[in-house]
Design a protein around this nucleic acid. Sequence first.
DNA 1: TTGACGTACGAACGATCGTACTCTTAAATC
DNA 2: GATTTAAGAGTACGATCGTTCGTACGTCAA
Lengths: 177, 177
Amino acid sequence: MEGLDSVTIGRLADRLGMSKAGVIGQFRSKEKLQLETVDLVMEDFRTQVWQPVRHLDAGLPRLLAACAAWVRYAADPGYPGGCLLTQVTYDYDARTGLVHDRIAEGRARWRDSLRRDIDVAVAAGDLPPGTDAPQVVYGLESLAAGITPARLLHGDDETEKWALRGMHAILGFSPMK
Amino acid sequence: MEGLDSVTIGRLADRLGMSKAGVIGQFRSKEKLQLETVDLVMEDFRTQVWQPVRHLDAGLPRLLAACAAWVRYAADPGYPGGCLLTQVTYDYDARTGLVHDRIAEGRARWRDSLRRDIDVAVAAGDLPPGTDAPQVVYGLESLAAGITPARLLHGDDETEKWALRGMHAILGFSPMK
DNA sequence: TTGACGTACGAACGATCGTACTCTTAAATC
DNA sequence: GATTTAAGAGTACGATCGTTCGTACGTCAA
């Protein structure tokens, strides 16, 4: 089993050298543990992707830098097995419950962040005036999320380039070279 | 629990009004059951997406029609909970075993199918000469796979349009309007 | 009629799951 | 130094998991 469901009380207890009771004593319940795990994954994402670019100028410069960091993170998040954020996202999108909601909230925040830079870029004339921001955001997140299965199922090692060029196309830039 | 893991021997037995032993007698093992399930999902995909367009002219016409059917299927596969093919894909990409391999094979066939039409379209002058087919295929499948989480996590109801326009952008067509 | 064969049953197995208890023990507080 | 607090161990529970038995049914061929 993979994904969040593999983070189990007993397994975690083994890994930590603790008893199951000790672990559940820390987290109160499985759902709390899952929520904390999701928070941790999201925090890692923000640290690795948003933190390095947040100081850049709002608008297109920061948007492009964020996309580059995003794609790099998805292709190599620093741990084995592919981006965990993508994993939990597709794992819990069809479920109900607090974990689903938490993921949706985090993603919504990221979407807003992207959207703001898109709006600024449009206002600055760096993106075409008629740009449909939600549509662009959808394209960006889809292209980023496609990296994991492409790498893990097919061994593609050019996903970073593919995703980035796709993002540029979505943003209305010149043909994909 | 969702996804393939929710297809459990006992649950299936309940649903079918059979005993667990009767179900496992049909499928020999859980893995065989999973493989048959994956085959069934893939067959449904081919029936709903490929079958309606396969008779069209190879190249850009069939490619565009396939994308439209693909996107429509992902947005509304005819059953609740989002496209199962997307689900199992992201569920098993990071695992090892026969199910992972079967999914990879099926996806590889679909990729080849797309790629062939792209090549034909390029040869026919319907797509730019320098088109990087694998890159385009990556973009198409990413944009299609993005539909499920967008709908289920955020309630987006324009995903079909977004995905299709994104695909056009990836193919090098005019700006996303 | 008999035998082989396949289907499905009921029961049980060992594992693992999440969770609820009690008890010990160490730290913190007064 | 006595008392309170909290962490964690240990154990047990009910569920559910996949799987393996032995057995009772068919159906069909010999």
